[in-house]
Simulated scan of single mutants.
Amino acid sequence: MPVYTEYELPDTLVSYCDKSNVALTIAAVDREDVPLVYVNQAFLNLTGYSADDVLGQNCRFLQAGAATEEERAAMREFIDDEEISAGRFRVTNSRANGETFQNFVFMTRLRKPDGETRLILGSQFDLTSAAERQNVKADLAANDSSLLRNADDLAAISRGFGLAMIGSAKVLSESLSTMATIIYREG
């Protein structure tokens, strides 16, 4: 997997992410415009882009005008606030072919032992079919702000709407984030 050549990532972190079937990205917060410095094959499969298309770009290119201002603002708040360790965001994204999808994104700061954040790990889950089956897009939009601030609310609401996939995605993402954080600190 090609890695953005201007940025050094620990081999163990890259190897760990390469093996995942979950769509994963790593962005450099210590670079202007927080560019992607790593994407795995699952991310490329999800979005339809090639690594050459996405490495070095900010993830906002996936929004292609489809995301709402509220969706964008929530992610900007996370990126700008060093005190927030992790965030969960539902955002409308576009694939390379122009098809939109509901992306449930989990972002986690990868901190060095001194607490400095240089990287953000993102894991993405396509929840389009679940949202369509349950016809809950409007309900999810109305509850986004509380979902982003309280994981307990997320679990309760997802059970209430029958979106077990959100709870599963959260658990999987947190497990991936924990492993990546440990690997990054040791690397």
Results as ranks from 00 to 15, higher is better:
122 G>W: 01
35 P>F: 01
3 V>E: 06
80 D>K: 13
50 S>C: 05
168 S>D: 15
110 L>W: 00
21 N>P: 12
54 V>R: 06
103 N>E: 01
167 G>S: 06
127 L>Q: 08
26 I>Q: 02
21 N>A: 12
110 L>Q: 00
143 N>T: 14
174 E>W: 15
93 N>G: 10
127 L>W: 05
109 R>H: 02
120 I>L: 13
77 E>H: 04
115 G>Q: 12
142 A>P: 08
36 L>V: 07
17 C>M: 12
77 E>T: 07
55 L>T: 10
38 Y>M: 06
65 G>F: 07
27 A>M: 06
123 S>T: 13
89 F>W: 06
2 P>W: 12
26 I>R: 01
115 G>L: 10
97 N>K: 08
94 S>W: 08
78 F>L: 04
51 A>H: 12
140 L>K: 04
110 L>N: 02
129 S>H: 08
83 E>P: 02
36 L>W: 00
118 R>Q: 12
150 N>P: 09
105 V>N: 07
141 A>D: 15
9 L>Y: 03
89 F>Y: 08
109 R>F: 01
103 N>F: 11
106 F>Q: 04
7 Y>W: 04
65 G>T: 11
122 G>T: 05
96 A>Y: 15
34 V>R: 10
101 F>C: 02
63 Q>I: 12
97 N>G: 06
83 E>H: 03
182 I>D: 14
119 L>F: 04
32 E>D: 09
155 A>Y: 10
37 V>F: 06
117 T>R: 10
157 I>P: 02
68 T>L: 07
110 L>I: 01
20 S>Y: 00
133 R>N: 13
69 E>M: 07
183 I>R: 15
31 R>T: 11
46 L>S: 03
67 A>R: 06
13 L>H: 04
24 L>P: 00
13 L>V: 12
186 E>A: 10
93 N>W: 08
169 A>F: 02
134 Q>T: 14
40 N>D: 10
140 L>M: 14
174 E>I: 03
48 G>P: 03
156 A>F: 06
127 L>D: 01
96 A>W: 13
121 L>M: 05
177 S>F: 08
44 L>C: 11
14 V>P: 01
146 S>M: 13
20 S>F: 00
64 A>Q: 10
184 Y>D: 07
115 G>R: 12
94 S>A: 15
173 S>T: 10
71 E>R: 05
136 V>R: 09
124 Q>S: 11
60 R>Y: 10
138 A>F: 09
108 T>K: 14
85 S>F: 11
101 F>M: 05
63 Q>L: 10
77 E>A: 09
50 S>E: 03
63 Q>K: 09
51 A>P: 07
157 I>M: 11
84 I>P: 00
73 A>T: 12
124 Q>W: 06
61 F>E: 01
81 D>T: 10
49 Y>M: 04
187 G>V: 11
47 T>K: 03
2 P>L: 15
98 G>M: 13
4 Y>W: 11
6 E>A: 13
113 P>T: 08
96 A>P: 08
108 T>D: 07
